[in-house]
Nucleic acid binder design. Sequence first.
DNA 1: TACGTTGATGACAGTCACTGACATGGCCGT
DNA 2: ACGGCCATGTCAGTGACTGTCATCAACGTA
Lengths: 188, 188
Amino acid sequence: MGRWEPNARGRLEKAAIELYIERGYEQTTVAEIAKRAGLTERTFFRHFADKREVLFWGSGTLRDHLVNAVAAVPDSAAPIDVIAGAVESIGAIFRERHESARRRHTVIAANAELRERELIKLASLSAALADALRRRGVTDPAASLAAEAGIAVFKIAFERWIGDPGEPDMSQIVRESFDELKAVAAGR
Amino acid sequence: MGRWEPNARGRLEKAAIELYIERGYEQTTVAEIAKRAGLTERTFFRHFADKREVLFWGSGTLRDHLVNAVAAVPDSAAPIDVIAGAVESIGAIFRERHESARRRHTVIAANAELRERELIKLASLSAALADALRRRGVTDPAASLAAEAGIAVFKIAFERWIGDPGEPDMSQIVRESFDELKAVAAGR
DNA sequence: TACGTTGATGACAGTCACTGACATGGCCGT
DNA sequence: ACGGCCATGTCAGTGACTGTCATCAACGTA
């Protein structure tokens, strides 16, 4: 048996999310999170760069998934369809997590600092998508525009998915939203 | 003559920008800003909600301008062209401010907190544009998508304008970028 | 002219996010 | 058995931000 309980990071994450839900993000101190996890404040900051990051550290996985998904699309596809395919494939990741995603989204939506952090994470997804397109030979500004538009679609599709308890498949909503984008951009 | 020097807010803003450029945002304390402006730290926080906001309080003006510009476009225009017209009209505001915009952008780009704040300000512009479209009868998700796409174009056009010292007219770049977006969305 | 009100600022103590430096003590390889 | 490793604890900071009360010129009003 170890000197310490295992999975310190996981305990901190669980404690933080519980407290953010119970009493709100601003009303929760890092000392309280650490105490509930049986650790000290200093240890919290060894695992997470700041009080917000505990809700966002998983976004690296999402970025890697998107980049791999872009690489998997056939070379013949147009940039916007490469992006659409990659964003659609995210649906599988979220399939079993509708309820936890909804809870997390509620916490984030209630606080401006957390919304800021969410936006910069989405911007980093966009930057990664644009990079992946450039590696396929797509030039700027088309690469940046396709990536930004794709993330815009993702944001809107995600909110619709969160708001619809009966729809487990985000991919479907993403597809519809890309079609809407194409219609809007065509001036309809 | 007043009890205090006039234009406290303006002095604070000037001092803050100078210091952010001279030694960087993180290396500048609010106490130093206040001292250079001949005021106290407490007074800084009466004029600006936080240390970042001093670079962003002007964004309300931009939002109002965009909303008015949307209202000024003929009813017959498609949503994406309404947004394009509104975003193009921003060019006039920036025409004489190429150099100060570039300096400000350099400061923001160098710091993650400031980039976060910039993103949430852009998101609030997007929300305002979507509202303005809804008031014209455009329904969701078309309104949100057109607004998000428009802000995405603005971000990209703005960076190109900043990077091109010989191009004083952002409107031209915005127009080209909207055309690129339309081409990308059409699968080209 | 006296006087009460207002509003921007100062002074000051306090909370909390975050950091650097050093100490502790099981674990693991030799 | 020993010695270094590493996750954690401890502690003393710094700096952003807030609440509260004091100050005092300006201004309106009697």
